[in-house]
Design a protein around this nucleic acid. Structure first.
Lengths: 203, 203, 203, 203
DNA sequence: GATGAATGAGGATTCATTCAT
DNA sequence: CATGAATGAATCCTCATTCAT
């Protein structure tokens, strides 16, 4: 038959009480990022992460209830970055400027650790992790920005989904191909985003 | 024995000369598709594929040198579909019509087996399989079409990459969200594609 | 939180198709018995069982879906013995003779592999395995015999439970203490059984 | 470090001289009882006990040299109860009354915390703990009582063993089945005990 | 060729115990 | 003394792959 994952929590197991453990937790998360980055999903296993973090496997499990919790932590870490960027974007005067800011942030972030970003995008899609990701929030945020950038758009929420998908698709592919020219990529992403908006009713 | 083969060929072990083995090979590939579709990467293992195909694990290894060969075969099968579609597209009178045809095909194909298509997109990105995929060819084909649809575009090859990424990003996300409205999705993808072309120099 | 065992089956994984595997299965079960006997629950682990059986750990899991399945198989093996004995007992002319036969069988069986028998009695009580044991049947069988041996007994089913408990308690304790005098033990068990029946309403 | 200590003392590490530690020790033991009761052997681990007791794992090890020491302490706690009961029983005028008193006490105690009692009976049987249990004493005490209740019995010590086994067997089984009718169970145990004595030479 | 039994390295996770703070 | 972070041996189990029949 199939596997029965039995609904687990991916939340950190304990809030680190001493400062010693805060460092441990952070080092584990960064180690997870590095392992994922350099070995891909194939080599992403708890022992490797613990080793790279310089802690014992036991310590890892003291803070993360399982392998997936590592991935989730990683996803949250990146989502937080996006949220910050989006918050800043929301302060921009024009909707267009907000979108442009967000695109720039996305491109920069992606090209900084291309492999990692791409793998996390993939991980986010895993059914088991679906509930743990803040996709809804992200769409909402982008929806708000779209609402400002293209006030006449009939379905800003749908546009938000699409734009997120477009940007992710483009930057992931660029990262995969090893593109390094930030400005060029950013220009092209803008073309896609504003082109889409223009043609899908945002005029 | 072990589990980590260092480097191998993914070509089918034998050219199926007789029709019997041809059928066997096809059934294994389809079984692989079904397992991938219903169980995801987690449940995608050689024994499961053999079982679903109704052949012994020994036979599977008779035709495929290893697990990855299955994935590659699957990717090739889908690429073939794309090639056909692209060939048809190339017969269209106008470049615009060609692109529209291709978009329609991509959307239809994606929404037919959304999970499968998405997982294969992911698999294609695995470094180990990179060489085996015909990404180059696909880009070339699309590049040609772009060249016709937007003759003034300064970098049709770059545009081809981007368009491929945009379409994949959008339809994968749509499939993931469970969208079922083909026409609506197709319209939006067109907006993105032609919007991008218009703004990135294709006028 | 607690552990979520997720309801597993303890049934053998596959019916051995070739005669080779029949032997494997048997050797695994006997190895399980021996390991349990000599190492107790502490040392009863799948690796030890596989090693003692002279098979790989993989083979063990090919036939048994998990550790508990080994225990269940062992319990079934012993229950089968009891059923045979009970069937023979049922052919006895008098109820008293039937009971005496069953007592003798129980004593003999117990003192043959005292440690094993005791540990299996314990294992039967584990909540996780409760459903897998044929305790109900055993009680019924004994209930029938009691019904013949003490026709006036007001609650033969309760008596059956009690007698089973008495016999198990006595022979387990005897085994634990290392008693070897079969006849003496059997006499004492008879005293307990018939004494109980006489005083609990079986006259 | 490791997990398999070869041989150790199970005595509490320090005689709790101050009342503070006395209370701590008692709370740990009771926590052990509760964990064993609610989680079974599976969930009976030092960390869980410490948590339930509201002390740190470090403190637990301050008072108990290891996990088994907890079990031993628990067994001793219950044995003490039995000893008290037996002492009271010894004050009874007739041997019969003494036995009846003891049976009543055993039944009551068992049905109060059925799971715990059963698990401790099992734990007592573990070879590693055998030396630590006061089984000998218990048998002696019961032997004395039997000597009074059935002065003609040829082997009061053997009878003591058997009676202990009978009572344990019956009440454990009853507890396992979830019986709650104290009086009925007590009647049946008496039937077994006195029936056994009558037939095994105590007449 | 086909079969499926057997293999065993690899990876996830637990938990008794120690020891720095 | 108390704390709880850290440790790592031990165990369960999976699955790619081989090979005798």
């Amino acid at each position: 038959m199939s596997q029965r994952p039995s609904r687990k929590t991916f939340r950190p197991r304990k809030a680190p009480a001493q400062s010693r453990s805060e460092a441990t937790v952070a080092s584990i998360v960064e180690a997870a990022a590095q392992v994922l980055e350099s070995e891909g999903f194939e080599g992403f296993n708890t022992n490797a992460v613990a080793r790279r973090a310089g802690v014992s496997i036991g310590s890892l499990y003291q803070y993360f209830p399982g392998k997936d919790a590592l991935t989730v932590a990683l996803i949250h870490r990146e989502s937080a970055r996006f949220h910050e960027d989006a918050s800043v974007a929301l302060t921009k005067r024009s909707g267009k400027a907000a979108l442009e800011y967000l695109i720039g942030a996305a491109v920069r972030q992606q090209l900084q650790r291309p492999m990692l970003a791409r793998l996390l995008d993939i991980a986010e899609g895993r059914p088991a992790l679906r509930d743990e990701t803040a996709k809804g929030e992200m769409s909402e945020l982008v929806g708000t920005i779209v609402g400002r950038a293209a006030p006449r758009h009939p379905r800003p929420d749908v546009a938000a989904h699409d734009l997120l998908a477009i940007v992710k698709g483009m930057v992931d592919a660029a990262g995969e191909r090893g593109e390094r020219d930030l400005d060029d990529l950013e220009r092209r992403v803008r073309a896609a985003v504003f082109g889409y908006l223009a043609r899908s009713g945002g005029a």
